[in-house]
Write a protein that binds this DNA or RNA. Structure first.
Lengths: 342, 342
DNA sequence: AAAAAGCAGACAATCGATTGCACAATTCAA
DNA sequence: TTGAATTGTGCAATCGATTGTCTGCTTTTT
């Protein structure tokens, strides 16, 4: 009923008449221990129901076998998929994962950094908050040589590895797709320009436009925080202008959703009057009416890759590298852009 | 560049010419230490940039200040919201959270139990996998007196506390709402009957039917694993019968979605020919066409409450109690049931 | 003024696994 | 046969914070 006195390596040692250090080495498969002893130790460990005390081991080795994750919000599908990828890989390698949410606020992000640091995680994977414009708090990690890998929303200021999707190509595919559907006046709603991924999506869009000699109108490119409300405002601004676009490429699905809702409300037909393409392939995009054409990016793969990279740095003690891994994206054609080229 | 030798309580002690134990007690606000000394210690700690080493403390106290969470899948909105609630509360109280996903498989759930146990978490919050029909693996915790709280998908076999939403009322509200809209033949697609929450939703539905003297037809109540595919099969079965229902109450939104997709495909008008109500208020339900009437349940609140309960058990060492907290639900009326009573 | 009580702080053991070094036993080379 | 090399284990210190017990000093009580 009380504390079951836990089995320690010393109990095993006593049972076998050997020393604790030998047991420890045997369990860690140290080459200095004979196979016979190793087997005896392992068998006895099983018999006694030994459970290693990670705490003690952590204290001695100052490795926690834990990685920290900082994400804006877990309830966004892309991030929860990323978490799944991170966990999958980390657990398989014997690492635990501690997750912190910044709620897209820089201050909370700083708190997350502190929490993870105090938990003495062996490494950190992060996707920065929307309004993070300065990365000093991350120096808590880099100063102490704690490996750090960014994903999706990455930070260029710090010398770390990064995992992103091919946002440039995504932007390009989206725009070219709209062009192929005969759209002539293609607007783009972009995100905060201090984040690479939005810059890249925009650049991809611009490249497609140039490639096909479509005139680029600065009024048709607007920056937005990409939430529901601002999406409506952007839709209004674009669609009520004297020369409205015949297509909009939104830098995320949430904004594309706002556009669709706005258009429905105003009797603008999609895709006939206005074609729409989003970005991310959020789960809801498939069920919208019309369903949303979008760029698929695999959160799972991004998480997996980031973890692979991080654990490699941790285990090989190579120090923070500056590798950048770019994962592929894919255009998913649905109804919102399904019109005949005219 | 190498290991910055970390500041320990002994460094503080040396700097002040006092002993380590005094520093420890001062930092823990022990009453045996004078205010003057406490202040001196705290100031010095700040000056030196002292960061307590949780590992050492954990080892000594055998408390990890960490709670474990086992959930089916983090990518489902209800669960990610619950996680947010759990984290919010736990962090505020100085606890870390380790999350494990069972992917709705009993075997993985067992693995999660082992992982969390090996991590020596101070307590566990769990929502069981769909196919878990036996709870022996959870005894790993109960045997060692590790507090355990279930939420949403709870287990009655073990003597633990539980947090659920009012599924019975939800079922009742859903059915009564359909009745108020003039529906006469109301089908119900329920979930696995070894899970209380589906039993309760069903019972709520039955009570409403009885209250309003609507005939209950056993053929109109079917059990389903409640996924996309099976939802289509259920829809087909119900709607192609010789006497199809004029309303369906599905035990989750995913199944309701399947019904809507099936009906669209077959030219069945919603809500005129068929009214539909789901359960959960998943984010997509708002954007469907027609938008989905559903029962809202707050994952966040459930997570918060479960954590409150768990931390209370941990901190007051009251042992596992058997409290059951029931949180409210709410009907959200949308288009899929918006027809005039006939 | 002597005894009792209270206070502030120090000492040292402890949590359990790891690891540098020492040492014994065995094998091998010369 | 002796010295060297190799192999298998044990000893004891260590990681850093916590905590039961003890000490010396101050205050209070009678």
């Amino acid at each position: 009923m009380k504390k079951e006195s836990n089995i320690t390596i010393h109990d095993i040692a006593k049972a076998l008449g050997i020393s604790g250090s030998t047991v420890s080495r045997a369990l860690n498969n140290n080459s200095r221990i004979s196979d016979k002893t190793k087997k005896a130790v392992r068998d006895m460990a099983k018999t006694l129901g030994y459970q290693p005390n990670a705490l003690a081991s952590n204290l001695r080795t100052s490795c926690t076998n834990t990685i920290g994750v900082i994400i804006p919000r877990i309830s966004r599908y892309f991030f929860s998929s990323a978490i799944t990828g991170i966990e999958e890989f980390a657990r398989e390698k014997g690492f635990n994962v501690i997750i912190c949410q910044s709620n897209d606020q820089k201050e909370r992000e700083s708190d997350c950094v502190q929490t993870l640091f105090a938990s003495r995680v062996d490494g950190v994977i992060s996707s920065v908050a929307l309004n993070t414009d300065n990365y000093d708090h991350y120096k808590t990690f880099t100063n102490k040589n704690i490996p750090l890998v960014f994903f999706d929303r990455v930070c260029d200021e710090l010398e770390t590895s990064k995992v992103v999707v091919d946002d440039f190509k995504g932007g390009f595919l989206a725009a070219e797709h709209l062009i192929s559907k005969g759209c002539k006046r293609i607007a783009h709603i972009s995100g905060p320009q201090h984040l690479n991924l939005y810059i890249n999506r925009l650049q991809g869009y611009l490249k497609a436009m140039r490639k096909h000699n479509i005139q680029i109108d600065k009024d048709q490119i607007i920056e937005s925080p990409l939430n529901r409300e601002d999406g409506l405002a952007c839709a209004k601004k674009l669609l009520e202008s004297s020369n409205p676009p015949d297509a909009i490429f939104a830098a995320n699905d949430t904004t594309a959703l706002s556009i669709i809702l706005y258009a429905k409300d105003k009797g603008i037909r999609i895709p006939q009057d206005l074609a729409v393409v989003g970005f991310s392939n959020e789960p809801f995009s498939e069920y919208l009416s019309p369903s949303l054409t979008t760029i698929e990016q695999s959160g799972f793969d991004v998480g997996l890759k980031a973890t692979e990279l991080l654990l490699d740095i941790i285990q090989n003690k190579t120090g923070n590298r500056q590798e950048t891994i770019v994962l592929p994206v894919r255009l998913i054609e649905r109804e919102s852009s399904n019109k005949l080229p005219n």
